[in-house]
Amino acid sequence: MGAYFQNIKDGFTTAFEGMSISFATMFVRKETVQYPEVDISSNATIAEKYKGSLMGMPENYRGILDVDLSLCTACQICQKACPIDCIVIDNIKCDKTKLSDGDGSPVLNRFTQKEALKTRTVTRFDINAAKCMYCGLCEKACPTSAIRHTNQFEMNRESQEELILRFVSDDVKATAEKRASEIEAEAAAKKAAKAKKAQEEKAKEKGAEE
């Protein structure tokens, strides 16, 4: 019999307790972020229109990948690091250039701390954003920080094909290929000249001997 009345009492008191909490919640800040109106891209911008206590996106947010081709050395490390093969890179041999930032300071290789050197040019750099799982392994593997995650996450496209991000345009590819063939031709010419010279010298030596 005691348990019977205890049940009634507990039922009422705990329901009373619960109701006080759900009632109280009505008067405390609402956490909903009204997304398109509120700019969530950073802690500073989210505070403009939003009264709740959630944070904006952090600086290191892993959004859609972006590639800075001027820094890319076409080393293909990101392609190898990617666990799901969503990065495809083709490259050709090209000018040997030392990489520099916009202000002219040299870019250092992240791992060796030596000046990064560009010997090849990418002719194809495709990232399949539909396949990408935004794990960040490519970003961590890149020696020159050419590939990195942006804060961008809105990625509505009409077809899957458009979700493949192509960073090297056909023009650039054509220019690069042209330049590569020039270099190749130059190299071939040089080689031929060198060979010719060597031959001539050989002939000369022969002549001198005779």
């Binding site: 006080s20 009632f23 109280a24 919640t25 405390v28 206590s53 959630l54 944070m55």
Partner: peptide, 16 residues
């Protein structure tokens, strides 16, 4: 009174 206690509890700052 109970409601007031609950409101104060929820107002403890987070990410301030």
């Amino acid at each position: 009174l109970k409601v007031r206690v609950s409101i104060n509890e929820q107002r403890i700052p987070v990410n301030s």
